[in-house]
Amino acid sequence: MTTQATTSPAPRRVRPRRRPSLGIIVGIAVLAALALAPLTGSRHSLGIWTVALIFAGVSSGWAIAGGLSGLIPLGHAAFFGIGGYASAVVFAKYDLSPWLGIVVGMVIAAALAWLMTVLAVRFKVRGPYFALYTLAWAEMLRILASNLDYLGKTNGVLVPYKVDAGPADLQFSDPRGFYLVAVGYAALAMIVFLLVKRSPLGWRLSAIRGDEPTAAASGVDVARSLTRTMALSAAMTAIGGGLYAQYIQYIDPELAFNVSVSIDIAVRAILGGAVLVLGPLLGSVAMTSVTELTQKYMDALPSASLLVLGLAIIALAHWFPTGIGGLGVRLKRIWSRRSDRV
């Protein structure tokens, strides 16, 4: 990744658009303002947006693999759960900082993802098979976690309150503290996504996504690119799992590894646009908003948000496959074309 500046005419082709730097600065300023807005809101809404941002980060982690590489991983609950359990166990059982636990989780998740992908690439488990393959790994971890005494079986692991806890323990007397951590994590995940997308690895992934045999024939090391991507994606996802477990102070096999967690992670990214930096954030915010709105106005029907979500995904597949973010890009393109003419 160090030889970024040398040569290669390919990237121009892959990403012809160049954003004006003013636009980026304004965009970041607007995002930052929006990110700080909930700080003034109620405790309840702060909690909602904390979780939404953690999942935005997790989905960005997913999108590194699911968006950029063209793989369809459907088992990211595995990495999310590993992060959650690692941070909870390190804190609850060994009385060490959950930050350390998150790092442990990242390492384990990355190692597992590396192993999974090495095997999958070696034995050509691709496409929908890869989706089922990753899902099966997550299921195995779920069953393992619900049967291991060390991990508290189906009861899971409780994260204890600590007297005079500080940021080092990821416990805050003011809930705004954890919210800022979530903001930081989401931002970090998006930056990592962007760095990967614009790095030589990102160009290789783009080539693989477009046409794998041609990419391989042109000298792209497919196996290495994919294993690295999955490992990085898993590590980024594990951070979110760790933060989530610390936030709700609790983790159990279903919260960590259930199929629905894997799907939730993937859907947020796909909904927002999995190849765009802002996609997972948009998707996560949209999903959380829908959930909250339906809970507010359709109290009697708690599943209404899932119905809306399911219908949204079907609509997405038909009319805007690049997600909400893709719609934005399309609008922007129309707008910039018009301003070019003026």
């Binding site: 369809i72 496409g127 929908p128 989706a131 799907i263 859907v267 796909i270 029907l301 708690p302 599943s303 209404a304 948000s305 899932l306 119905l307 979500l309 399911g310 219908l311 949204a312 995904i313 079907i314 609509a315 997405l316 597949a317 038909h318 496959p321």
Partner: peptide
């Protein structure tokens, strides 16, 4: 039917959406 020619991702997404929506309807 309309998505059959566009590759496997579209149909996969539709069936995923159906899964979520039908489960939600049953719960409702």
């Amino acid at each position: 039917a309309r998505l059959m020619a566009t590759g496997q991702d579209g149909p996969l997404l539709v069936t995923l959406g159906l899964w979520i929506a039908i489960e939600a309807v049953c719960a409702m």
